[in-house]
Write a protein that binds this DNA or RNA. Structure first.
Lengths: 152, 152
DNA sequence: TTTGTTGCAAAACGTTTGCAGCCTC
DNA sequence: GAGGCTGCAAACGTTTTGCAACAAA
């Protein structure tokens, strides 16, 4: 059995999805998927575009196209955190985490809390079929707290 | 003591913020604030711009400017839910709610759950000063569930 | 009087779209 | 061979910016 976070496993899932929905298995799509699964942190389309120049050059249109497919099959999630660009993140197995976002410098930090996870996941909805969720906590990071203090 | 959700109360808070930060108390800013606090649901800049034509015409630049100020003093919150436009919402007192978002039709519904609220609000952070948070649950609304079923 | 704010229009920005040619299937 | 996919560039729509005129302090 393959490791659920390995590229091979994810590649299989994506292949299966493409076949099922009669989409084509193009080399561009797999090159993009491969690059995405290297990121440990959030990534943007711009990062992907610039950093793939050396390995397998693809157009922005293709990147957006592929990202849509990956979102549809839940291999990545999209975060709109207020900056210019949308941020994306690979979905890695079981550990859903939450986000701390500094409203001053925009820095994003992840954390995980079992009690919060449980309270959300145990919630039952009558008319809603939950697939995933995002929790964003806004506030000031330690650095910005210190800087604001010094300004006074 | 004024009702915490009344326009007069909110106006006072905004005035105080403007004075404290040496911003000017312009009629445009209060006209925008007044219109915003009529909305019971989310609103967009476009809605604000079109609907203020009759009462007090302001430019888009001024609307964006004022919205930034209202965000800074936590009288409204911003939601980036994936559509073209950013959505905003007035902050009304104590009842923080959460959002159910249909990934197919984009419809947004609110709900509130005490256990979820408590688990989030009781969380302590060492290096982070929490100001507010947003929880978005993605999935399929009942209508889209039915429509997908019929397609098969 | 000073200078922050406004309205207007142009610019900027990420993202989407149209289209001819290519390459899966 | 049919038609989905790609790259390119133009288009799109929201948001930001520059600037002269205005008005709050």
């Amino acid at each position: 059995m393959k490791d659920q976070d390995s590229f091979e496993y994810v590649k299989d899932l994506f292949t299966e999805y493409l076949l099922k929905h009669h989409h084509r298995k193009t080399p561009e799509r797999f090159a993009i998927l491969e690059r995405i699964f290297i990121y440990e942190q959030h990534f943007t389309v711009e990062m992907l575009y610039n950093q793939m120049k050396d390995s397998y050059r693809v157009s922005l249109a293709t990147i957006y196209n592929t990202i849509d497919l990956l979102l549809e099959c839940n291999l990545i999630v999209k975060h709109l955190l207020g900056g210019q660009l949308a941020q994306y993140e690979k979905v890695s197995g079981l550990n859903t985490h939450h986000h701390l976002i500094c409203t001053r410098c925009g820095k994003v930090k992840e954390f995980s809390d079992k009690q919060i996870r449980t309270s959300i996941q145990s919630k039952q909805f009558v008319h809603f079929q939950l697939s995933h969720y995002s929790l964003y906590l806004y506030g000031l990071c330690s650095k910005c707290q210190a800087e604001l203090k010094n300004q006074k």
